[in-house]
Design a protein around this nucleic acid. Structure first.
Length: 314
RNA sequence: GGCGACAUAGCCAAGUGGUAAGGCAGAGGUCUGCAAAACCUUCACCCCCGGUUCAAAUCCGGGUGUCGCCU
């Protein structure tokens, strides 16, 4: 039994999701729930490309700037909190509009994913990491083969991170980590109206570079400096975000600002490509090509009209 | 004008007679608790012409180009 309809707007970084989501939310009496692993953090405004204050004031936003950058935040926590917000929106009679580029977060809402199988076991992770460092990934793979053969088949021996989690689940929960395949067709709690935003790759890459330049001009380096001043380091997860990790290197005089900018652009481009690989898997999604948008109003209206249509369908 | 060095994929680069390492970029893909992460796959007949040799990116001659030095 579905709990209700939600709109999901996804697309690669810098494609323009924020603007379109706000437009849709305004027209359809919705609230925006971010599905972004970096925008959740407080004080990370410029680099994570958060909506501006004015934009935030136009529509109610959720899970943007709500977590301290020194705190841990994971997909499991996201799923729990996001579902709670969605329920609240239903209660208020608002249309939930999920908007963001973090694929795993989106999956956690549209599919029936269960992260609760096993909690993280810090000491086991350390032990396994140590094992991998000394003997190599192959040893972990052997161990995984014993406790969860199915996962071992699916996870490459070089992928230490994935093997560690799989072993963690198998050894603490006693059962294997579920495969994505098994859930792919199984839907989650909501009726999802999926909207994909995309544009010609080269055009997107140009936009990304321009946006990075704009971030630098807007004072991204100062933002990072401020965060470091608060005691954050490159080891904090939040500081591993694109735009942050590269600038830390510059601020520590490891390389020039120019080099940092170059790396931010490169990492953003690679990220956008990976996002597209992820999103292309979605079956029931309506893609909108924003390459040759002449008027924002016009395309935003096209998208809104499509959603409106889907909303009245039973 | 003379002398010398070098010419290998979009870029960096190894290879000095036995059938083209590697890295980056690009493209495609995987994904159930760090996901802006982690990982996988893929991508060249070696500047041109001629010669030597069973065999040449590798040796020889010529051409072209780039860089450096000299007058």
């Amino acid at each position: 039994m579905k709990k209700g309809k939600i709109v999901v707007i996804i697309g690669p970084t810098a494609v323009g999701k924020t603007k379109y989501a706000i437009h849709v939310a305004q027209k359809l009496d919705g609230e925006i729930l971010s599905a972004d692993s970096m925008q959740v953090y407080r004080h990370m405004n410029i680099g994570s490309a958060k909506p501006t204050e004015e934009e935030m004031a136009m529509v109610r936003h959720h899970l943007i700037g709500e977590v301290d950058p020194q705190d841990e935040w994971t997909a499991a926590e996201y799923q729990k909190e996001a579902k709670r917000r969605i329920d609240q929106m239903f209660l208020r009679g608002k249309l939930p509009i999920i908007c963001g580029g973090t694929g795993l977060y989106v999956n956690s809402l549209i599919y029936d994913m269960d992260f609760s199988t096993a909690k993280e076991d810090e000491s086991l992770r350390k032990e396994l990491q140590l094992l991998a460092d000394s003997i190599g990934g192959q040893a972990l793979h052997e161990r995984l083969k014993k406790v969860d053969p199915t996962a071992a088949e699916r996870i490459h021996p070089n992928n230490i991170k994935k093997m560690i989690r799989a072993i963690e689940v198998a050894e603490t929960a006693g059962k294997g980590i579920p495969a994505f395949d098994g859930v792919f067709e199984k839907e989650g709690d909501y009726d999802c109206i999926m909207i994909g935003l995309n544009m010609n790759r080269q055009v997107l890459y140009n936009r990304i570079e321009q946006r990075v330049d704009a971030m630098i001009e807007a004072g991204l380096a100062d933002e990072v400096r401020m965060l470091l001043g608060q005691g954050l380091t490159e080891d904090d997860n939040s500081m591993k975000g694109i735009g942050y990790k590269e600038l830390i290197g510059f601020l520590k005089s490891e390389y020039s600002l120019e080099e940092a900018v170059k790396r931010i652009k490169q990492n953003s481009r690679n990220y956008a490509k990976r996002q597209m690989t992820w999103f292309r898997r979605y079956k029931n999604i309506k893609w909108f090509d924003l390459t040759d948008v002449v008027s924002f109003e016009k395309s935003a209206e096209d998208i809104t009209a499509y959603i409106r249509e889907k909303l009245v369908e039973s």
